[in-house]
Structures are given as C-alpha cells and as structure tokens.
Amino acid sequence: MEAATNGQTVGPARVRFYQTGTFTVGNRLLDVSVQSVQSDPRRNNSLNSGHRACQGCGEALGARYALDAAMRATKNRIVVANATGCLEVFSTPYPESSWRVPWLHSLFGNAPAVATGIAAALKVKGKDDVRVVAQGGDGGTVDIGFGCLSGMFERNDDVLYICYDNEAYMNTGVQRSSATPAGAKTNTTPGVGEEPGNVFGQGKSVPLIAMAHGIPYVATASVADLRDLEYKVQKAMGLHGARYIHVHVPCPLGWGSAPSDTIRVARLAIESGLFPVFEAEWGEVTGRRRIRDLVPAQAYLEAQGRFRHLFGKHPDTRRIAWIQDIANRNIRRFGLLDEGVQS
C-alpha cells in the first residue's frame, strides 16, 4: 500500500483516508495529477463507441483502459498492431473502424512479427518518439502467435505486447485455448462425461514463459483493477525492449456470466488467487497485488455458467478442491497474502 522501505515504489500511488481510496475510477477529492486516465473527461477513447462487442465485454473495456494509458504515456505517439480475434472483428467490420489510434491488422498468428517490423521501420526512419504496441486475444497470443511472440521476446524488440486473456476462442464460438482454465466448459471441452470441462494439468502460463526470456518487463493485470493496469502500462511505456502485459478480461458470452458481472467476476478471480496479479523485471518478480478480501475459489466459479457442471445437486467437490489447490498454490507462490505487499 505504501512506498516500500527500500525507496522503490511497488505499485500505483494509493491514497489513504479518502472515502473510497483509489478503488474507484475517479475521486473528486484527489488532485488532478494523481487521477486515473479513465477519469479524465478528455481521455482518448482509443476504442470508440459503436463497436460491436457483446454487452459487458471485458476485452473492449481492457483495450480502452490499456491503450488510453499508453496514449497518455507517449503523448499520443503509438502505432498498434492487432492480431485476429474478437478485438479485431468487433472493432473493424469493413468499412467502419472504432480505433482512434493508428492501427493495423494482418493475420491471426503474426501480430508480434508485424509489430517488430513496424519498430524496425520506425528506427530506420529515425522516428524514435513513436512507440509500438501489439495486442491480441489469448488465442492469437498463447497459441497461434506464440512462435512469433517468443521470437519478439528473445530478440528484445522494442514492442509492448498486450494480451487480453478471455480464456478461449470466443469469436469463433467458444473453443478451448491453451489459456482455458482447468474444469471450464467450452464447446470443445463439454461439461459432461467422466472428465467434464477442460482437462486438468494442461495449458500454460505465458507471463511466466515471457519472464523466462529475461525481458525487461512482464506484468499481469485485470479490468477489475484499473489503477494497477494503468500503472503497469505507463511503466511499460517508460521502458524499451520487449515488454509483455497479460490482462484478464471476462467474457460474458463464453464464461456464461451476466454482462453486468464482468468486473465482479474479474475481481473474484484476483481475490480468490486464481488470477495472480504481479509484475516482473528482467525475469524476477518485483511486485504483486495483495489479495484484499480473500474469497474461496468457489465464489469465482459459481458466478460463471462454464463451471456450472461442478455444482448443482451433486457438486463435484473433488474438482472444486483441485481448483482451490491451484488458487492456494498461486497465493503461496506469488505471496498474494503477504504483509507489506501493496493491495
């Protein structure tokens, strides 16, 4: 919560003793200089109204949060490369565009490579004030674009890659990706049979893989914590080299949650420990967002239709306990309940 004793701040500036602290988007009692980007009436609205995302779309929200912060951090000097996926489809049905940033789309799997090319071109042209952001969903990032992404990391190309993780291929009708959590129902992992839902023990953590490349900055963030997300984007834009931010964005359609519950569900993921929020520099974890109000994993699962097969008349207590074990491991591994950690 406060500046660490070693003089390093370990998170966004938080203000104590105000009605709502900095949990809300804005706070009329705070000085403008410490207000969030999203509370600014002149924010960029990088993703404009009229986009065709579903009601309560977490990805649309996350993309605006992140790009508005990147725009402010660079004084509106960014170019964005976008992978195929929901984000691309709902924002740019020909001939409309919702983007208020220089934006280009190529293929599902090559956004990191396209971004690398843009960065190289800007370097050749001597435009060192223009920065490059690449973005995609979990499918384009952790599966299809993974080779390009790893290449971009190992070459330490000057790109911030943002993954909006809604944990499956939503655009094509909710198919499993390697970011789909254990036990979740998708159309390729139905919630029936001996082993309902996504198989336990599969999948991968791309933030940890990104850290293994030893790049300057890796962070996870969530639409449920705006201040933390903005802080991380701003920090990433202040660095050069390959940077990666992985943002948790609930999908009401694919997760079977109420559109009005998007932020609540994302918050329960953090507060249960199932989505650890942390940051790492040069491969070392340097900060984590402390759990403020610990909840059992079950509270998160129950808010979503994709885990419904675990409940009902005969709850699947075994699988619920396994998922709780995953949460417990995250809490232990990242120190999500440690004292003295920012919350």
Binding site: V25, G26, S39, S49, A53, L61
Partner: peptide, 15 residues
Amino acid sequence: CFECDNCFGVCPDNA
C-alpha cells in the same frame, strides 16, 4: 451520486 467516475470508467461503450 458522489462523482467517483466509476460509471464513466467502466462503460465498455463510452456511453
């Protein structure tokens, strides 16, 4: 309303 900007911030449609 105490003007916390939450509605302004969390609207995915900038409405």
